[in-house]
Design a binder for these strands. Structure first.
Length: 426
DNA sequence: TCTGGGGTCCTAGGACCC
DNA sequence: TCTGGGGTCCTAGGACCC
């Protein structure tokens, strides 16, 4: 946090001589690009393209082409509303598989070009090029960024925009001004001047809630905030949030480019086409979601201790319940028995129609790390080895015969007769 | 036209231990 | 019989991001 006393520190002195060189590589309307690349004759030929959920159901826009954005369409907007603004647009579904594949290709290409790469999201990557001056023969950062952009385009067919500066925050905001398909670097020392061109709500970390609270105090732009008395800010927001905001508005950000951010949680959730009330229906969905979370968990070689169930009621009120086990687990049987108890507890408290159901797992550890030992060694394991074996065998069968082939027992009764024949993958 | 799905981080209160 | 703080873990909720 406190970035203020940096001037006299070792870091400050080092930086004055050799300022950090941070880039943010941001894929332009990523989901739209991927949809076009996957279907060059269909989506590839549409100028007005929306990627997202179905307009008749409860879908929202994941990403829209620039042509569509001119009509005021934004991501997160209900697809029906988007079509109201831009009736000519074509809507196609998101292909998560294709998107993660393309994302990985971009990341791998960047890793060939830069020593330190951090994936910040599916379509954003931070690069730290500090200390590469000799390697790059003192090439200006903007030229390096331009070369990286061209290289990524030719190797992955994905167009990116790149922002650069001495801080992640500066690089991120600069990338936003470079879109689409451009490069923008803020020179060292120009950070505060650069920040002056933004409204507070454009600063990453200032969302709708804080932006609105600031606006009520008459603070809309960065310029509005700079002269504000720091002590007043602390009385209003508390010391920690005040200092965060104080620094952000000045372009100060102490976070580093960290290539090895490990995953903290895995979850799966679903909004139903129509609200569900029947517990049998809901528990069947719960089982599906749990199995999906379990499969991801095991595929990544992880186990987890905390299981969470989330319900969004028909009135959009969201409730959550969680339980932490003494040992990390991975088998569907364990996950489901905990999830079912949590689900029933939530339903006992409030029984109305359910719009969304979700299951998550956190407190993750490597699957091969030893279980927590208790001093007397006599504790029964939370999860029988047999259950783990069963889950892994089912994972393997699903891999070979498709995920519809093996459904949990309770689901078999409800299998639809007109589902496609089981396909054998090569 | 009502509001997706995948995440991260922070806060605050209570339990529990020393 | 009464009275401490500090640290850590767990839980629920909420803000925020893409």
């Amino acid at each position: 946090m406190g970035e203020n006393g940096v001037r006299g520190s070792a870091r400050g002195t080092r930086e004055a001589a050799n300022p950090p060189k941070i880039l943010l590589v941001d894929c332009d309307m990523f989901y739209v690009q991927v949809a076009r690349l996957e279907d060059p004759d269909g989506a590839g030929k549409e100028d007005l393209l929306i990627v997202g959920g179905s307009p008749t159901g409860r879908g929202v826009v994941t990403s829209a082409s620039y042509g569509v954005r001119e009509f005021g369409v934004r991501s997160g907007m209900p697809t029906g509303q988007a079509l109201g603004l831009c009736p000519e647009a074509k809507v196609v579904p998101v292909s998560r598989k294709a998107c993660s594949l393309r994302s990985r290709q971009v990341r791998e290409a960047l890793q060939d070009l830069s020593p330190v790469v951090q994936a910040a999201s599916i379509d954003e990557f931070y690069l730290d090029l500090s200390g590469t001056e000799r390697l790059l023969h003192q090439e200006p950062l903007a030229s390096t960024a331009g070369r990286i952009r061209e290289e990524i385009l030719s190797r992955t067919a994905i167009s990116v925009s790149i922002g650069g500066g001495t801080r992640k925050l500066i690089a991120k905001l600069a990338a936003g001004t470079a879109k689409p398909g451009g490069v923008r670097v803020v020179d060292p020392g120009q950070e505060e001047a650069f920040m002056m061109s933004f409204e507070l709500r454009e600063i990453p970390g200032i969302g709708p809630a804080l932006a609105q609270a600031l606006e009520k105090k008459g603070l809309v732009s960065v310029e509005d905030l700079l002269p504000v008395d720091r002590a007043w800010l602390e009385r209003w927001l508390g010391p920690s949030r005040a200092s965060w905001l104080w620094n952000r508005a000045r372009g100060r950000d102490s976070s580093r480019v960290n290539p090895s951010e490990s995953r903290k949680s895995i979850s799966s959730e679903r909004t139903f086409g129509k609200d569900l009330s029947d517990d049998r229906d809901l528990e069947r969905e719960l089982l599906r979601l749990t199995t999906s979370v379990g499969a991801t968990l095991r595929r990544k070689g992880l186990r987890g201790r905390t299981i969470t169930v989330k319900i969004r009621d028909e009135d959009f009120r969201t409730r959550q319940a969680g339980h932490t086990l003494p040992d990390a687990v991975e088998a569907d049987a364990t996950l489901y028995s905990v999830a079912q108890n949590l689900y029933r507890e939530l339903r006992r408290k409030r029984r109305v129609g359910v719009r969304l159901l979700g299951v998550g797992i956190s407190s993750l550890v490597d699957g091969d790390s030893p279980p927590q030992l208790d001093l007397f060694g006599g504790k029964a394991p939370v999860e029988p080895e047999r259950d783990r074996v069963v889950s892994r065998v089912l994972d393997d069968l699903r891999d070979r015969f498709g995920h519809r082939a093996i459904l949990p027992g309770r689901m078999l009764e409800n299998r639809n007769k007109d589902e496609p024949e089981i396909e054998r993958k090569s």
